[in-house]
C-alpha cells in the first residue's frame, strides 16, 4: 500500500513537470499545427542556463536562495528569447510551406540546439546546485520532500495562471481566435505574427520553469536531457489531446503517474526480469495505445472543424 501511495506522489511530481513541458508543445500546435520538436532542447537549455547562473552566483558568495531565484529568472528570460528566435528564424519563413517542411526543420533545430549546448556546457553531467532546503515529510507511510511539494504547487499555480491568460485576457482570446481561423483573426486586427510569437515565448517560459524544476529535483543535468523529457512531454500532450491546454495538463499528470506506477511494479509484473530502469517503456506504450485507439486524445477535438 505504501508503495502505491509513494509512487502516486512521485508520479504527480514528475507529471507536473511533463505537464508544463507538454503545454509548450500543445500551445504551438494549437495555434499553427506544428509539433515543435526543438521544445525539449529549449527546456534543456533552460536547465543549463540556470546551473551556470546560479552556480557562479553561489560561488561569488550570494545567498543560495537568491542565487536560485536569479538562476530561474535568467533561465526563463533566456528560453523566452530562444523560443522567440526559433519562431522568427526557423519557422516563420516556412509558414506557408507544406506541413512536413517545418516538422523536419524542428527536428533539425533540435539537433542544432543539442550540439550548441554540448559545445557550451560540454559532454559531462553537471550537478545542479541544491538551493532548496531538504525537508522530508511523511504521509501514511509515504515520504516526500519539500522540493516535491514546491514542484507540484508551482506547476499548479503556473498552469492556473496560464488558463487565466488564455481564457480571461485579450491576448488569450486573440490566441484562441487565431488557432481557429488565422485569416479571420487577422481581419479583426490581430497581428498573427505577434500571437504566434507569444505562443512560442510563453511555452518556452513554461519550459524553462520545468527545466529548473527537473534540475533541482534530480540535481543533475546534461545536454541530452531534453530529448527524452521532450518525447515524454509530447506523449503527454498527445494523450491529453494535442492542441488542448487542459488536455496537456491532465495528460502530463496522468503520464507521470502511469510511469511511476509502472516503475514501481514492473519488477513484480515480470518476476524480476525487468527493473525500474525500464520505466520509459510505459510512456511509449501509452503513446502507441493512444495513437492506435484514440488519436485525438482524451480532450482532443475532431480535426477539420475550423470555422
Amino acid at each position: 500500500m505504501d508503495i502505491l501511495l509513494q509512487q502516486i506522489i512521485n508520479g504527480l511530481v514528475q507529471g507536473s513537470i511533463y505537464a508544463l513541458v507538454a503545454l509548450g508543445y500543445t500551445m504551438v500546435y494549437g495555434i499553427m499545427g506544428l509539433i515543435n520538436f526543438a521544445h525539449g532542447e529549449v527546456v534543456m537549455i533552460g536547465t543549463l542556463v540556470s546551473i551556470t547562473v546560479a552556480g557562479s552566483l553561489i560561488e561569488a558568495g550570494m545567498p543560495v536562495s537568491l542565487a536560485g531565484m536569479a538562476g530561474l529568472s535568467a533561465s526563463v528570460l533566456a528560453c523566452m528569447a530562444l523560443g522567440w528566435g526559433l519562431e522568427r528564424i526557423a519557422y516563420r519563413p516556412l509558414r506557408n510551406a507544406p506541413r512536413l517542411t517545418p516538422l523536419i526543420t524542428a527536428i533539425g533545430m533540435s539537433i542544432v540546439l543539442q550540439n550548441l549546448a554540448m559545445m557550451i556546457w560540454g559532454r559531462n553531467y553537471l550537478t545542479f546546485p541544491s538551493f532548496l532546503p531538504k525537508i522530508d515529510f511523511e504521509l501514511a507511510g509515504a515520504n516526500f520532500t519539500a522540493i516535491q511539494v514546491i514542484i507540484v504547487v508551482v506547476s499548479a499555480t503556473t498552469m492556473g495562471g496560464l488558463l487565466l491568460l488564455v481564457y480571461r485576457t485579450k491576448l488569450g482570446m486573440a490566441m484562441r481566435a487565431t488557432a481557429q481561423n488565422p485569416a479571420v483573426a487577422s481581419l479583426m486586427g490581430v497581428n498573427i505574427n505577434r500571437v504566434i510569437a507569444a505562443a512560442f515565448v510563453i511555452g518556452s517560459a513554461l519550459g524553462a520553469l520545468a527545466g529548473v524544476m527537473v534540475g533541482s529535483y534530480y540535481e543533475i543535468a546534461h545536454y541530452q536531457m531534453g530529448f527524452m523529457l521532450g518525447l515524454k512531454a509530447f506523449t503527454a500532450a498527445v494523450l491529453g489531446g494535442i492542441g488542448n491546454l487542459a488536455g496537456a495538463m491532465l495528460g502530463g499528470v496522468l503520464l507521470g503517474i502511469i510511469e511511476a506506477l509502472g516503475a514501481g511494479y514492473i519488477g513484480d509484473l515480470t518476476g524480476g526480469f525487468l527493473g525500474s530502469n525500464y520505466q520509459d517503456i510505459f510512456a511509449f506504450v501509452v503513446l502507441i495505445v493512444v495513437l492506435m485507439f484514440k488519436p485525438s486524445g482524451l480532450f482532443g477535438e475532431k480535426t477539420g472543424d475550423r470555422a
Binding site: 484562441r176 481566435a177 481557429q180 481561423n181 485569416a183 479571420v184 481581419l187 472543424d305 470555422a307
Partner: peptide, 10 residues
C-alpha cells in the same frame, strides 16, 4: 468574409 468565418469555438 464569404462563408461568415465566425470563430466556432468562441
Amino acid at each position: 468574409p464569404e462563408g461568415r468565418g465566425v470563430f466556432a469555438r468562441l
